[in-house]
Amino acid sequence: MTPQFHQLMGEATRLTQAGQLAAATALIQRALGAEGDGRAMGALRPAPAHGADVIDVQARVVESTRFTDAINDIADRAYRTGAKAPKDLRTPCPAAGAPDTFIAGHYAHPSAGARDYRLYIPPQAGSRPLPLVVMLHGCTQDTLDFARGTGMNEAARAQGLFVLYPEQAARLNPQRCWNWFKHSHQAAARGEPAILAGMVRQVMAQHAIDPGRVYVAGLSAGGAMAAILGQAHPELFAAVGVHSGLAAGSAHDLPSGLAAMQRGAPAARRAAVPTIVFHGDADRTVHPANGEQVLAAATPAGARAQAERVAPPGRRASTRRVQRDAAGQVVAEHWLVHGAGHAWSGGHAAGSFTDPSGPDATAEMLRFFLAHGRRNAR
């Protein structure tokens, strides 16, 4: 490493500690430029060619511990303060066990494409294998925004969970939507389901995660992709949470996706993992009928339904419907939140698309998830 690199990184660390995140990011980018010949940090690898739906991104291999520490510190401070963290810097994941960290990472699938992510590592990491919750943001959101709005990291800290936040890139979808409506992103072996499943497996290989307690949840487009992942990879996910989303297979292109969002679309009942659904009955972006269709797709024939009205003081009222199979096990749960629009129920106002007055979707999803696990998982 050149003396200039060490000088720039030292100053970036100082600026980060002072809370000057934008200036620190600019210096880190200068440091990258100073070492950009590839001798010390690894050269930029050109993206392999893919189809029009999946465009790979360039990845930078970084060997500097000081760089890794600095950029992870920037990401963590940005999360806590609500500031914007840098989007174009990749870091390898450090070893698990550091208390309460929120790190940046990158995953590249051999053929389907690549995505960035952030991973929340709880203080309990390293003591025993812990559950993992995968959180898929909605359109126009990013990982930090989604973490702030849902409060999932705070809940994970209390309960001892890893939380993985994959991030969609604007170059792959202009609104940062997951491409749930495209036929090329709905099967296990290709497109975004392949990328996301591979990312999950990479994180599982790097950290002490219980393979029988891996869950996926999402909002809107992220909820639709979570439903697809549950159908495509039941060997990986023990339960699914779909908030304001759509059932797997409800569309095959953009026009059919828009139509499904406006009025719903029939969804065939499939062999599915346990699923919890949240949807506002005043949602004008994704019609509430879609929540019913997610529930129907996840409910086996002959299941028994039990409904109740939930109206905690100071919160929106909801109708909660629980579906049990012939053995009496809960296989699906549906929360219809009365008067709620297209927003994460019970979320924090610091994030976008949240409804702080709704029932706590984060807490209810974690309750549902942790009641379900896959036996003999490896």
Rank of each mutant, 00 (worst) to 15 (best):
P3A: 12
H6N: 13
A12C: 02
R14C: 10
T16C: 13
Q17F: 07
Q20D: 14
L21D: 01
L21I: 06
L21P: 01
Q29D: 09
R30F: 00
G38K: 09
G38F: 13
R39W: 02
H50T: 15
G51W: 11
R60K: 08
V61D: 14
A75Q: 10
D76I: 09
A85L: 04
A85V: 01
A85I: 04
K87G: 13
C93Y: 11
A98G: 12
P99S: 13
H106K: 11
S111A: 08
G113F: 04
G113Y: 05
R118K: 09
L119V: 14
L130Y: 11
V133K: 01
V134I: 09
T140G: 03
Q141F: 14
R148N: 07
M152I: 09
P166T: 13
E167R: 11
Q168K: 11
Q168S: 13
Q175T: 14
Q175C: 14
R176K: 04
A188T: 10
G191L: 12
P193I: 02
L196R: 03
L196E: 07
A197N: 10
G198H: 05
G198R: 06
G198F: 09
R201F: 08
M204W: 02
A208I: 13
L219K: 04
G222C: 11
I228H: 05
F237M: 12
V242D: 09
G245T: 08
A248R: 01
H252S: 14
L254G: 14
A259Q: 04
A260S: 09
A265Y: 01
P266Q: 12
A271R: 07
A272D: 09
V273I: 10
A303N: 07
R304W: 03
Q306I: 04
A307H: 03
R309L: 07
P312V: 00
R321D: 12
V322I: 08
V322A: 01
Q323S: 15
E333A: 08
W335F: 15
L336Q: 11
V337K: 00
H338Q: 15
W344C: 02
G346P: 00
G347A: 06
A349G: 14
A349V: 15
G351C: 02
G358L: 00
P359L: 04
A363C: 11
A377G: 05
A377N: 11
